[in-house]
């Protein structure tokens, strides 16, 4: 099993470090050719507008959609969640549009509103996950096929639709690897 981390911009290095801690083979994805080498993809935090534009510029948007249609698992954090969403409130920015969700960008305010909070992440209920939120989005609406995995003060911050997983927070910035392990469990089911 080899996991790709989209490395156009953002905190891809932290995801690679988390995967290394879990002894998973991981590689950076910057071009269409890199995508053929991986069984799953993580889309990191960063600037969703920037990452979306670069994906389109390099043809990675079409390539990722094609792999997703074949069942490749994808996990998006923060900007990655925005890029996975079908609908982005008030924005026409480029996106993958693979998950039947509506997201609200910067839902907790601009950079000044970055914070941390303990969350119940339903697949790992034994103890709380520390959620790091940085200019984070929320999910304002979900379609019928989408499961809500975590909420913060009534706002949806983690969702799953089949093999697609998205969190508004950044588990890769903490020492807790359980969210990544949950994502890996989705991959092993497909191999």
């Amino acid at each position: 099993m080899r996991v790709g981390v989209l490395a156009l911009q953002g905190d891809f290095a932290e995801h690679l470090a988390t995967l290394a801690r879990l002894n998973v083979e991981a590689t950076e994805v910057r071009k269409v050719g890199d995508l053929a080498q991986v069984d799953a993809l993580i889309i990191p935090g960063g600037e969703s507008t920037t990452i979306g534009k670069l994906m389109a510029r390099y043809g990675l948007d079409e390539a990722i959609r094609a792999r997703a249609a074949q069942g490749m698992p994808i996990y998006g954090t923060c900007a990655g969640m925005i890029l996975l969403a079908k609908h982005i409130e008030g924005s026409e920015q480029p996106r993958l549009g693979l998950m039947d969700i509506t997201v609200r960008r910067n839902a907790f305010g601009r950079q000044i509103e970055s914070f941390e909070a303990d969350l119940l992440f339903r697949p790992t209920p034994e103890r709380a996950v520390r959620g790091v939120f940085i200019r984070a989005p929320i999910v304002s609406q979900v379609g019928d096929e989408v499961d809500t995995l975590s909420e913060l003060e009534g706002k949806i911050v983690a969702v799953q639709q089949g093999k697609l997983l998205a969190t508004a927070f950044h588990p890769e910035l903490t020492d807790d690897t359980r969210v990544h392990q949950y994502f890996l469990s989705l991959i092993s089911g497909t191999l």
Partner: peptide
């Protein structure tokens, strides 16, 4: 979350 980016 600016890493790997350009600030203009």
């Amino acid at each position: 979350m600016l890493r790997g980016g350009v600030i203009m």
